[in-house]
Structures are given as C-alpha cells and as structure tokens.
Design a protein around this nucleic acid. Structure first.
Length: 634
DNA sequence: TCTACCC
C-alpha cells in the first residue's frame, strides 16, 4: 500500500543489500602515519573536549600530515589556516566574495573529478539498479498509489520559504535541465514527479543558494540535495587533476550522523550518479579502512561520510576538502547538537574547506530547534529557509499511544504487545517491530530476554561491531528477525519498510528524538503504530510529549495531561521552551524577533534575511509555528 | 545521563 513514490523508492533502496558496506576482517594497513605526540586512539568525544579547550593555540594542533604527493605541493590537509586567529568562528564574513556557483560561470562540460578516463569507468560501473527487480521493488514501482493519491495530498502541504530572492519552485523534473544522464536515472528510478521538498529545494540549490530545509526523508530529501549536486558538478568546471597524489579531492561532501545512514545515502546517490562519470564514495568507521582508501584513490567526486572517519582520513591526508563546492549535512540538527558540533566545526571550519560563501551549504532535517538554527547560520551564507510540512490532517498515519508502565513491568507489557501483534496478524507477514531502548546494555539485555522467550529479535547499537550492526539491520529488514531492539543509532533517517510498530520501551529524553523514532513507522502509506512506556523517570518529557500528541490529533491520556500540568507548574517547563514554544522546527528563526535583537547580529556573516515568504498558502504562517504534525517526518 | 561519532 504505497501512497508515495518516494516511499516506494525508499523501499526499493533498502531492499538492496548494503553491498559496499560488507566488512571483512582485513586489518588496517599501513599502520598509522607517524604523528609526533599523538596518542594512539582517543575517542572522538574526548578529543573534542581537548580540542575546544585549546582553541586559541594554533600550534597545539596536531602536526599536520603531509600529503605524500610527488607533485611537490606539500600541503597540510588538516588544521590549516582558516581559523588562524583561534576564533571559534570561521574567519570573517565573506559576503563580498563572488560565489562560484551562482552565476552560471561554469560552462564546461564533463566536470568529473577523477583520474581515469570517464568512459572506461562507465563501462565497468556496476549497475546500482541491479537489485531493483526484486518483488518489493516491483510492487513498489508498479503500485498505482505511487503516482496518485499522495501527490494530491501533497498539494495541500504548507510550504514556507524565507530569505532573499527565493527561486520559484518547479512542478516537474522536465522543467529543470538536470542533464541527460541524470534525467535517464530519474527515469530508471521511475520518478514521475518531484515531491514538494524537491520542487522547492532543487531550484534553490541549482541557483547556487545556501539552504536550510526542514523536510521528510520519505518524500525525497536525499534526492533534493543529490540531484542538484550531481547536476552542478557535471555542468561545472572540471576539477584540477591530482596526478599521482594519494590525496582525494572530493567536490561534494555529504555528512550524516550514523554509519548506516551514510551507507543508505551512498546507495541512493550511486543510482542518481550512474553513468554520469561521477564517483560516489562512502567512508565510515567500524569498517576496514583499506577498501575505503582504495575507493578514494580511484577518484571521488561526492564523498558520503560519518564525521569520525572523515577526520581520520583528513589527518592521514588521504582526503582534502580544498575543492569542496557543495556541503550537505543530513539530519543537520543532530550534526550540530552537543555531541557532534565540535567535529563538524573541525571539519568545516578548521580544514582547508572553502569558507561559507565560497562553497554551497545545504542543511536538511525534520526537526530544527531554533538554537540549532542559530548555530547553523555560522555555516551558511545568505541562506534560504525552507519548511515543507503537513499542518492539517492526514498525519494520522501513525497512531500514538502512551501507557504508564513501571520499569519492572515493561517486559511483561512488551510481551503482551508482541503477542497481540502476532495474534492479530493484521500487519501481514512482513510486520516488523522496532523497539527503542535508552542504553546499549539495555538493548543487549532485552534482546537476550526476547530470544529466551521465543521472540526472534536482534539488536543494533554502538557497542556492536559494524558487521553485527549491518547484519542485524539486514536480518530485520528481511523479516528473519522481525523484532529489532535499538538505541538511538536507528532513530534517524533509516528507511526500513514494513515497520508496523515502534515501541518506545524507554522514552528518549528529547522530544525531537521521539519524533524521529516514531517516524520509522507509518511510512509508505501504511498505518503505523507507536507505543510508548511512560513512568516517573520520563517526567521531564511529559509536557512536550503531551503537546506533541495534541498537535498530532492523538488521544492524550488524562494522566499524562496531569503530569504535564504538574510538571510545568513550577518553572515554566524547561522542556518545551527549548524550541521556543513551537517545538517543531517549522519556522525560520530569523523571523523570530527574540533572536534578532541588537540588529544584525546574526546577519554579520552575510546571512541577510529579506523577509517575506513565497509559495506559502495564505493563512498558513500562524498555524504552523505551534504545529507538530510530525509523524512521517524524518 | 543517554546516544552517536576513527583505532
């Protein structure tokens, strides 16, 4: 029962094996380059702390690796001068610089950035569509609902854009000249019509503008940033050849917060880039680095990566970011939150990556808290804010339930739910259940208990090996183990078809995480169910959860409302203030006067805001700010 | 406090 082709495509995507990611136990070759004074291995989070405390001492940065290029340019690939002053921010506004991509200056053709001849590679390129002929994909592509029902619903989706000179949206792919190869791949993907986020984001991106987009992955978020990137690279001036260098110089960088999501994006991007001559490479931790190094050496135009592995590659001088023209952050609010921000700043502001204004930066997420938006503007130049979302009805695809369950009763409750689901059989043979827990240990423990009790379960979390993680995901997707116990590693972005039920065994501490978690179900037009176990330890979530459910037209249990009221009685509820009342990031923070006092503070980097909005249905603005119709949002 | 992020 598909209702959108985008979801159908997502299904097809995920049915493809994560081939590129199949890890082996090959040892990391070449050891680590000798790096004076550098500890063997410091976990990323610890290094972040270290880094931030020594921000003003340029000399305290690790000795830069020297690219082993025979060509004579021995350039430090990491911690170069872009932040020479030691400021936390990048070096000053560049508002006067000419944007390389917006003026159509690139007239050349064949701008691929690889060493070998493009033709040879085209012949050898594995067909990324090879797996699309399986039954799931066929069903998806042939389903009538693909091109019908949901697109009608899309017409009513409110769209907010703000910023200067917003390019108008397009209605068809044909209106945009994406080039022959890409057009052919669109046909292969059986994409008929762009989704709203694509209709708006692609022209914005092709115009060379920076973008902050609130969008659903299920409706083609990946397409929204991949298409313009691929198209622009093909039209752009060819990158300088790097003869004989072992350093790779990608033109585009796509970062995502988890390894599995990077794999998924890579799989999708490969299809779009098929036979364009462009090379898409993925790099992420937990997998042997050797294959990734080989992939990079063969040339890379678009690099999809998780932050940690990319930092490693930068330190080894196997990747340089100095030719980056396009930077995309998927799940951008996650990438910029406390845990990831230092690494992202390091990559974006303390390497040889061109500063904002000289690259094109695109941020995508479904949730965009205002303070994250504010921080994100550090990375953006005169950007356009885009929010695509359904405010009104029809997000009732996910039924949300909350039950009061003591910790000691959770397993028993869970078993009841699983039994009920198994007995009703209402979800068909592919019905999958995704169980979120708070801790990695809890995940192992629950998985073990489920298996002991005859429920075929597996688990995915950060303490498992990458092989185990990917095997677990495959096993879950295939239905071999229809119960997956997961930490938040699986909360965002992953397209897993047939998830009928998301159970928040432990509720997250952050309402945004809840939003992303339950968004794993209710996809592809199916009715999804999300059940949460709530008890005293979740008190801090009571208010925001209650508000969220109200906004989604869900039935809020009376006891939860009382919890929420009690909670907010004292302090004004630290929780829901976080995103300024409208917890859903459906609004440009630049329009919020409380973020704009002092005049121009946030525009100092050239982030001019022209005000106004375009393409928004009338009367839309007011209802949106507080709305949290989020069920299908990623 | 938890999660995720390189050996």
């Amino acid at each position: 029962m598909r209702t959108s082709w985008a979801d159908a495509v997502a299904n097809a995507e995920s049915s493809a094996a994560v081939t590129s990611a199949s890890p082996s136990n090959v040892a990391i070759g070449g050891a680590s380059p000798s790096r004076g004074g550098r500890a063997a291995y410091v976990p990323p989070h610890l290094r972040n702390r270290q880094q931030s405390s020594e921000s003003s001492a340029a000399s305290s940065a690790p000795a830069p690796s020297i690219a082993d290029s025979p060509s004579g340019i021995r350039k430090p690939a990491f911690f170069v001068a872009s932040d020479a002053g030691g400021s936390r921010r990048s070096s000053g506004p560049i508002r006067d610089s000419v944007r390389p991509s917006s003026s159509g200056a690139r007239g050349g053709s064949g701008g691929w950035n690889s060493r070998g001849a493009g033709w040879d590679r085209r012949e050898r390129e594995a067909n990324p569509f090879a797996d699309d002929d399986d039954d799931a994909a066929e069903a998806a592509f042939n389903s009538q609902e693909n091109s019908g029902i949901n697109f009608d619903a899309y017409e009513d989706i409110p769209v907010e854009t703000s910023g200067e000179n917003v390019p108008p949206p397009v209605n068809t792919f044909a209106e945009i000249d994406l080039g022959d190869a890409l057009t052919e791949n669109i046909r292969r993907c059986k994409y008929v019509k762009p989704t709203p986020v694509q209709r708006h984001a692609i022209p914005i991106s092709l115009a060379g503008r920076d973008l902050m987009a609130c969008a659903q992955t299920g409706s083609g978020k990946t397409v929204a940033f991949c298409f313009p990137i691929i198209s622009a690279i093909l039209r752009g001036t060819p990158a300088p050849r790097q003869r004989g260098s072992r350093t790779a110089f990608p033109l585009a960088l796509i970062l995502s917060p988890t390894r599995e999501l990077s794999v998924q994006i890579h799989e999708e991007a490969r299809k779009f880039a098929f036979q364009t001559g462009l090379r898409v490479v993925v790099a992420y931790g937990g997998a042997p680095i050797n294959q990734q190094l080989r992939d990079l050496e063969r040339g890379v135009d678009i690099l999809v990566a998780t932050p940690g592995r990319l930092v490693d590659l930068l330190e080894r001088a196997r990747v340089s970011l100095q030719h980056i023209r396009y930077l995309a952050l998927d799940e951008a609010d996650r990438m910029l939150d406390m845990g990831f921000e230092p690494q992202i700043r390091k990559i974006v502001e303390q390497t040889d990556m061109p500063p904002r204004g000289q690259r094109q930066t695109m941020l995508f997420s479904a949730t965009f808290p205002k303070e994250i938006q504010r921080m994100a503007s550090d990375f953006l130049y005169n950007y356009i804010f885009l929010a695509v979302g359904r405010v009104g009805s029809s997000t009732d695809l996910i039924v949300q339930r909350v039950e009061f369950v003591l910790d000691s009763d959770k397993r028993s409750y869970l078993m009841d739910l699983l039994h009920a689901q198994r007995d009703t059989g209402a979800h068909g043979k592919h019905a999958l259940t995704l169980v979120f827990v708070e801790t990695k240990r809890g995940a192992d423990s629950l998985e073990h208990w489920l298996c002991m009790n005859g429920f075929p379960a597996t688990t995915i979390h950060g303490d498992r090996t990458q092989q185990e993680r990917e095997a677990a995901l495959r096993s879950f997707k295939s239905g071999a183990t229809p119960i997956l116990v997961a930490t938040d590693v699986a909360a965002r972005g992953l397209d897993i078809p047939h998830v009928a039920h998301v159970i928040n065994f432990d509720l997250p501490n952050d309402i945004d995480d809840y939003v992303h978690r339950i968004g794993r179900t209710g996809r592809a037009g199916k009715s999804g169910l999300a059940t949460a176990f709530f008890n005293d330890s979740n008190a801090s979530l009571a208010r925001s959860l209650s508000e969220l459910m109200q906004e989604s037209n869900q039935e809020v249990p009376k006891w939860l409302s009382q919890y929420a009221a009690a909670r907010s009685y004292g302090s004004g509820s630290g929780r829901s203030r976080r995103t300024g009342g409208g917890r859903f990031g459906g609004r440009d923070f630049r329009r919020d006067s409380s973020y704009n006092r002092g005049g121009g503070d946030y525009y100092s980097g050239g982030n001019g805001y022209g005000g106004g909005s375009s393409g928004a249905p009338s009367g839309y603005g007011g209802g949106y700010s507080g709305a949290g119709v989020i069920s299908a949002w990623d």
